[in-house]
């Protein structure tokens, strides 16, 4: 009986492992086979000369450059707005909040973390509609998308800041207090410098999230062809949307190839960011262990 159970358990778990890793491996290999050949300068710059494209002398029409630039701008806007809020709220929850306000606010931020990204996109869109009634010039645009993405990554930033501060050893706080530092000085000169890599790994994950999300930007102003955006209030292209759009609207083999190239680039980008965040995180836990 025990032998049979062990045998079945072995067979079942190994099968599960094989299926999952096999599926992931298939995905990666499939993208590599179809996308690797497309990866070159032409994929990004199209038929435009690289110099002309980079200095905005000529518009890149058949390359990924506008989409890549769009995604980078989105990341900058999203992190630029969410970072101060996320750091502030994280510090408040870890250091200042009383028991009741802490559990209240962390419930609210848990709710925010659970909101599906398409609903955040819908919020951005409704906000645009509302603003449009009062200022007719406001349409779905780069700025709105960036702000909505900021709201999407906000809970990640809050939680990573809060955990990074809370997992610091109590001895640090005691030592600082014994040396006569008040709460603010302890935070500024002792705790934050110690927590910085933990916070940093949260930021990297937030960048990855902002780079890959498609649902939010779909509702707030991304388009298939816009070129490099000229202002915060114009339409723009983005890498994940390009992938989605190509999958349904490609007209010839060449466009499909570019879609594969874009998917491969996005996958590699996210994997790199993810690994980087993991390494930073590992460094932190090693240092904490040493203490």
């Amino acid at each position: 009986m025990t032998r049979l159970f062990d045998l079945l358990l072995y067979a079942f778990t190994w099968l599960c492992g094989l299926i999952l890793v096999g599926a992931f491996g298939t995905l990666v290999v499939f993208l590599l086979i179809n996308g690797l050949l497309a990866l070159d300068f032409e994929l990004i710059f199209g038929s435009t000369a690289i110099g002309d494209a980079l200095f905005l002398k000529r518009v890149v029409i058949d390359g990924l450059l506008p989409a890549i630039v769009g995604t980078c701008l989105l990341i900058i806007i999203a992190l630029g707005t969410a970072l101060p809020l996320g750091l502030g709220a994280g510090i408040y929850l870890a250091e200042y909040a009383g028991k009741i306000s802490k559990s209240f606010f962390s419930l609210i931020f848990d709710l925010l973390a659970g909101v599906p990204s398409i609903v955040i996109g819908l919020f951005g869109f409704s906000l645009t509609l509302y603003l449009h009634k009062h200022f007719t010039s406001i349409m779905p645009c780069l700025l709105i998308s960036g702000l909505a993405l900021g709201l999407l990554v906000l809970p990640y930033l809050i939680r990573s800041t809060q955990t990074a501060l809370e997992e610091l050893p109590t001895t640090l706080r005691l030592t600082a207090a014994a040396l006569g530092a008040d709460q603010a000085a302890t935070l500024r000169f002792v705790l934050l410098p110690q927590a910085v890599s933990g916070i940093f790994s949260g930021i990297i994950l937030a960048i990855g999230r902002a780079a890959e999300d498609t649902a939010v930007i779909m509702l707030t102003g991304v388009v298939a062809t816009a070129g490099i955006p000229r202002s915060l209030f114009s339409n723009y292209e983005a890498l994940p949307f390009y992938i989605y759009y190509t999958a349904s609207q490609f007209r010839n083999q060449q466009e499909l190839q570019r879609g594969f190239g874009a998917a491969l680039i996005l996958l590699i980008l996210c994997a790199l960011l993810f690994t980087l965040a993991g390494l930073v995180r590992k460094k932190v836990s090693k240092r904490l262990m040493a203490k």
Binding site: L27, F30, L31, A211, E212, A247, L266, L267, L273, F274
Partner: peptide, 19 residues
Amino acid sequence: IKLMTGVPTVVYGFVGIFF
């Protein structure tokens, strides 16, 4: 498996359609 949590959903969709 940790790495898999970082795969963009649009990439899953894309590979889904063509594979």
